[in-house]
Structures are given as structure tokens and as C-alpha cells.
Design a protein around this nucleic acid. Structure first.
Lengths: 190, 190
DNA sequence: GTCTATAGGTGGATAGAC
DNA sequence: GTCTATCCACCTATAGAC
């Protein structure tokens, strides 16, 4: 049979999609056990409590997300291209009929275990940090222009993209997201 | 004792706050019955099914929201002022530690009864309609400036405000919302 | 690692008395 | 309109066999 690591990963894969589509409070162990063809009890061997599963989910999601940002950095793209690719990550998630994992959790914030809240905010803090770097680089190289602190622009970008994603998904229209994303990029382009 | 209408309203008041803070899937009839000091069974007299309670909740929320927009119109404020007041409605909700009811439901979209989904989208459609009117009025009067269709700008505004609200609430920092709202207004100001 | 069995709780919802 | 009592489905989680 599959070994521990393998099964754990598959559990996380299924749970991740469930959180991104239905929310952390919108799925149960039964929703994972069914497709995986193991029992609910077996899931508890890998993740004793749902809160721990949630925490691990965010940690993995952030790791993968930051890896994608690092990959963007390695392409040597200019600041404007980097922002476009940042938005493209969101668009890709949406095209797969998912919401951003942490955007979803932000809505459920008040019902989440404390550990998950901290992890969720850490994800957004890291997004902000990367964006601030890109924005400042872009301002220096005259690729980008904006007023005020880069941090403020970064926060506005993250919030706007998450919100646009949420509404686009409700309407089942990916294009709604793209239109907003394009406008946001245009607004900071020199 | 209180009559039907009175109790129904109080049920809606409590349920509304619960949805705005915990989400539609994040509360139960017990959460309403407790504070109201009646039993869960009694709640079913007023709202036989939770889905109906949810539907009525959205209808009332939209009615009140549109009334607030009509009130803005009656002030005779100019387009820029109207947008500022529009954002102020969001800020006020947030200051009360709530999310927009429909922004919350947008996150839970895939788990909602169909009737609630339709009502939720109608709320956003009406918001868009009002904003399009304000934006076009502002463009004519040179108070506002923006490229592209007013509808696109309206959708971007709604999405961005909802997203900013969601993140600001998670961080417990109302100021995060205001910073984004101010930037959005500045971007369409002539 | 996975299973059966089950505990202990809560979910929405109904019947019928008052 | 509100109550008590109850149903049944589902939830997370655990014990203990294999």
C-alpha cells in the first residue's frame, strides 16, 4: 500500500481543494475519506485533529506559493512583468474553479483555530513583502509609478485581487477577474 | 409576548450579525435561540428552514443597502462625494466588526442553496448599477476620470472594497481598509 | 496503516401539547 | 407562538483488533 508520506500528501491534496471550494467549515473527514477510499478513522492516523490538518494545509500552500514567487524572480523579468505573473497565479487558481486558500480562510477567520489564523496572516505578510520588493524595484527603474508607500500599494493589490477572485468565482466568470487584474496593473504602470 | 413580526425581526437581526461574522455555515439555530431566549423549535415557526432564513436575510440586507444608496442620492452630493460615502458604508460595517453580508456569502458560494446564490448576485448587480450611474455622472461633470467602461470600473470597485474589507477584518485593523478605499477613490478622481 | 465499532456531541427539522 | 420531546443524519474523535 501507499506509505505514510504518500497518503498524507494525497489527503492534503484533496483537503486543499475542498477548502478552496467549500471552505474549512464546509467539508468533513468523510469528504476526504470517500475519494481516497479509506475510512475516516484512518485519516486521524495522519492528522489527529482537523485543526492540525488545516495548519499543515496553510503551511504547504504558502511554501508552494513562495516557491512560485521565487521562480518568477529567477526569470529575471522586469517589475511590471513580475506583477503580471503574480496576478497570473491567481488567475490560474481561479481557472481551476478554486479560490485562494487563504482568501477563503480570511472569510472564515473568526471561526478558525488560533494557529490557523496566525499561519493565514503569515501568508499575506509574505505576499506583501514580495510585492513591496517588486514595487520598489519598479519605481527605481521607472517601470512602475505610484504614490505613497509601497507597502500600502502592496496591501491594496492583495486585497483587490482576493476580492475580485471571490466575486468572479461566484459569477462563474473568470473574465471578471482578469479585467480587474489588468486595471490594477495599468494603474501602477509608468 | 412579542408578536410575530417583532420576533422575526429580532431573529433576523441576530442571524444577520452571525452571518457577517461567522458565515452562513458558521452558525446554527442554537446560536440564535440562546440570546433570544426561545427554543430552537420556536425559530422554526418563523423560519421553517435555514435556507429560507438565509434568503430573507439577503433580501432585507439588500433593501437596507439600497435605501442607504438612495439616501446618498438625495443629498445631492457630487459624484466624488457619492463614491466616498459609498465606501463609508463599508467602513461603518467593518467598524462594527462585521463583514459585508454578501461578501461573506460570496466566499461560501458553492455551499449555498440556489435561491441564496441568486439573491446574493442580485445584491452585487444592484451595487454595480448604482456605481455605474455615479461613475458616468462623474465622468460627464469632469469630477471623475477613468479609462474603459464604467461597468468595469464599478466591478473593480466592488471587488476591491470587499477584498480589502475581508483582509482588514482578519488583521483587526480598520485602517487597512481605509487606506485601500482612499487609494481607489483617488484613482478615479479627476 | 488501515480497519470496525462506537462514543459523545451538534446539526436542522418535526410532532403535538399548551 | 412557544414549549417539550424526539428523530435522524452527520460531525470529530478514540479504542482496540488486525
Amino acid at each position: 500500500m501507499a506509505d505514510n508520506a504518500d497518503t498524507s500528501q494525497r489527503i492534503l491534496d484533496i483537503a486543499e481543494r475542498l477548502v478552496q471550494t467549500r471552505g474549512f467549515n464546509g467539508f468533513s473527514y468523510a469528504d476526504i475519506a470517500g475519494p481516497l477510499r479509506i475510512t475516516k478513522a484512518s485519516l486521524h492516523y495522519h492528522f489527529p485533529a482537523k485543526a492540525q490538518l488545516g495548519k499543515r494545509l496553510i503551511e504547504r500552500y504558502e511554501r508552494n506559493f513562495l516557491a512560485a514567487l521565487a521562480a518568477i524572480d529567477r526569470t529575471g523579468a522586469n517589475a511590471r512583468q513580475k506583477l503580471r505573473r503574480y496576478a497570473a497565479i491567481y488567475a490560474e487558481v481561479l481557472r481551476d474553479d478554486r479560490m485562494c486558500l487563504c482568501g477563503m480562510l480570511a472569510a472564515e477567520f473568526s471561526t478558525l483555530p488560533k494557529a490557523m489564523r496566525e499561519n493565514m496572516k503569515h501568508f499575506f505578510d509574505e505576499n506583501e513583502r514580495w510585492l513591496v520588493g517588486v514595487l520598489e524595484e519598479g519605481r527605481r527603474s521607472k517601470q512602475l509609478k505610484f504614490t505613497g508607500a509601497a507597502r500600502e500599494v502592496a496591501r491594496a493589490l492583495v486585497g483587490s485581487l482576493e476580492g475580485a477572485m471571490m466575486l468572479a468565482r461566484s459569477y462563474g466568470e473568470t473574465a471578471r477577474f482578469q479585467v480587474v487584474a489588468d486595471r490594477l496593473l495599468a494603474e501602477v504602470s509608468a
